[in-house]
Design a binder for these strands. Structure first.
Lengths: 173, 173
DNA sequence: CGTTCGATGTCAGTCACTGACATCCCTCGG
DNA sequence: CCGAGGGATGTCAGTGACTGACATCGAACG
């Protein structure tokens, strides 16, 4: 259904597409659509749980002596690896999300969830509550900025390179 | 109407309160409610534009030789000053927002708007696009964490102190 | 073969939000 | 004091997101 939804959103826009339209193109009922996705926006955010889990694992797997910010960045690098080989899809999706405030809002919620997962993993490494929250926010900000740059320009550079490059700018602050 | 809405949300929760309920308690029509607020959630986010403007001005007024992150922090400090003398109201509002995912989502959008305004002001000071975005995100993260700590514990310390305290943790990263 | 369970379809209902139109009231020039 | 204009509000009807209750259907299993 995600495919059907993205096509329709790209054709006529998010608001001009009803949940029924998406369902119909996917060959199911509107009711079924809402059994798969809690709401109409969620259809564009299917992989977010996976990204959170991936980031968490990478943070816990980071060397024990790594600084909090470094561990957090390792997390978002791992999360980024999930997108790395789908530049076209990511760019297409990014354009759709940027075009609608409601979708941007949802994207922010997912990024906040990624930050929460990151902070949680950092705390499991013994990092202070406040430091964990700030390191997580910083790493996710790097991720967000790096992805935006990655999708709005042709590859290369790879997403991984964009993230490390953006992280360097952060450290320079 | 904000008062009526906050009372109702606190009594029965956000979802259990219809737009009509709020309007009725405020002595107007549902239609009038939607003329004042673009949607039901917005009723809790009235001052956000003012905060953005205040932060922008403070950043532009910061000493020309201040580092980007310092200027950005001056911005969120100024924004925080708008809340400083309303601890009870802020705490009450915070509890309501935290209790509902939709409201959290909207809060994130407002914080993102604050970050955008901050980044924009930084760019006007000659800061690079990427550096501005990262400094803005960092400052807003500090703001967010500081406010959360401020409202979930009794005053003092003041919000200003919480912000500078949180900023110190960030620098230590 | 009958049962059971998960996924799907059907239907009716609530509520957020919007456009079109009428009304009311306040202000200001005459 | 009067009438015109404009801004805020009320009324009404409609669309679409989402939900709960119930029926159906097909694969898996003993």
């Amino acid at each position: 259904m995600t495919r059907a939804a993205m096509d329709l959103f790209a054709e006529r826009g998010f608001e001009q597409t009803t949940a029924g339209d998406i369902a119909e193109r996917a060959g199911v009922t509107e009711r079924t659509f809402f059994r798969h996705f809690t709401d109409k926006r969620e259809v564009l955010f299917d992989g977010s749980k996976t990204m959170e889990a991936t980031a968490s694992e990478a943070i816990l797997a980071a060397p024990p002596d790594a600084a909090p910010l470094d561990a957090a960045l390792a997390g978002v690098l791992a999360a980024g690896a999930l997108l790395a080989d789908r530049h076209d899809h990511a760019a297409r999706r990014h354009r759709i999300v940027e075009a609608n405030p409601g979708l941007r809002e949802r994207e922010l919620l997912k990024l906040a969830a990624l930050a929460d997962a990151t902070a949680h993993a950092l705390r499991a490494r013994g990092v202070t509550e406040v430091a964990a929250a700030l390191a997580a926010h910083s790493a996710v900000a790097v991720f967000q900025v790096a992805v935006a740059r990655w999708v709005t320009a042709p590859e290369p550079p790879s997403l991984t390179d964009r993230i490390t490059e953006t992280a360097a700018v952060l450290r320079a602050l």
